[in-house]
């Protein structure tokens, strides 16, 4: 019961945060020296056209009325219209957001499935061959520039080995012959649910290189975090007690120690997840992945402020939710942590 109370309280706070974020981004976008009306009309506008557009977009109203209009339509689930494309932002997000989520989640899975076990093992055999290897790997992962790694992978797996596609989410022929019916917007999930095997394979192959490229940074982080945390935990008396009790090393490392040591890693993973939602821009550009990063960057370059505000809000929602989930996980892992 106490847990639900806590979740409700946090969600209420989240609404306050969202409100403030919308307020701040809205006003920052409006005070920037730009002319949305001119952008709306297009190149070489006449005075009349601009005046009409100003009226249509409500830009002739005072700022607080503009914000009020924006907020009320937001509450009705209407994110507004992109100034540049004149498309409803919600419709555009339906293609960009799942694409990014699919990429980011895939890269998280790759990064953590490798990073956490590697961190545990190199912490347990500190100074050994595996530890040296994974420390070099971690430094390489964190310091290799994304564009370099992405191009390198393309060079090896596309140009040389001809194993994987170079860019995009799906091949044109496959998209025509085996169309993907959007359900979640995750191509791999949608094709799998529909039993559309050729398209599933194709989507999965397209996902591999960008996901690995994006995973590198998180992989390096989680190796380092897990390693440091497990080394600290292995010095605890209860680990010695478990060894004395004759429990196998595997259990001691991956159950008894890891449960105590995993929280710092999860916190970093959570933060880098949220960061990647828009921070994956470089990967998206290199692999022509139609994601949120590209969407936001284009909006910023063309001062498409309804899009900027909307994407900021979406990222804020993820940030708040991820933090709440992390806190709940922490409370579930460690009974000494009180939810308050």
């Amino acid at each position: 019961m106490q847990r639900w109370e806590y979740i409700l309280k946090r969600l209420f706070l989240a609404i306050v945060v969202l409100f403030s974020v919308s307020l701040i981004t809205f006003f920052i976008a409006r005070v920037l020296p730009s002319d949305p009306a001119a952008a709306w009309v297009g190149p070489r506008p006449t005075q009349e056209q601009i005046a009409k557009a100003t009226q249509t977009l409500g830009l002739d109203q005072p700022l607080y009325i503009q914000y009020w209009r924006y907020l009320t339509s937001l509450l009705h689930g209407d994110l507004g219209v992109s100034i540049k494309s004149r498309q409803p932002i919600l419709t555009e997000l339906k293609t960009y957001l799942p694409a990014t989520l699919e990429l980011v989640i895939a890269s998280m899975i790759i990064g953590e499935l490798i990073g956490i076990p590697l961190g545990v093992l190199s912490g347990a055999w500190k100074g050994g061959a595996l530890d040296n290897f994974s420390r070099i790997l971690a430094v390489a992962c964190v310091s290799l520039p994304t564009f370099f790694l992405g191009l390198l992978l393309q060079l090896i797996f596309f140009a040389r080995l001809k194993l994987l596609p170079i860019s995009g989410r799906i091949s044109n022929e496959i998209a025509i012959n085996y169309p993907v019916t959007p359900i979640t917007g995750f191509y791999t999930v949608d094709t799998l649910v529909a039993g559309n095997w050729p398209a599933f394979q194709d989507a999965l192959l397209h996902l591999i290189l960008p996901a690995i490229t994006l995973a590198a940074f998180g992989l390096g982080l989680s190796i380092r975090m897990t390693r440091a945390s497990i080394i600290e935990t292995l010095n605890e008396k209860y680990i010695l007690a478990a060894r004395v009790a004759g429990l196998p090393r595997r259990t001691i490392l991956f159950v008894l120690a890891l449960k105590n040591a995993i929280m710092p890693t999860l916190n970093v993973v959570g933060l880098s997840f949220v960061y990647s939602l828009t921070g994956s821009i470089l990967v998206e550009v290199i692999f022509s992945w139609p994601g949120l990063g590209q969407y936001l960057t284009n909006a910023v370059l063309s001062l498409d402020f309804p899009v900027i505000v909307s994407v900021t809000l979406i990222v804020t929602v993820f940030y708040v939710v991820v933090n709440l989930v992390l806190d709940l996980i922490q409370a579930a892992i460690d009974p000494r942590v009180a939810l308050s």
Binding site: K237, Y238, A241, A242, L256, P335
Partner: peptide, 14 residues
């Protein structure tokens, strides 16, 4: 088997 001085640190807290 072995038991230690400070039982509060010899039991796994989680």
């Amino acid at each position: 088997a072995m038991i230690f001085q400070d039982p509060s640190t010899s039991l796994n807290p989680v």
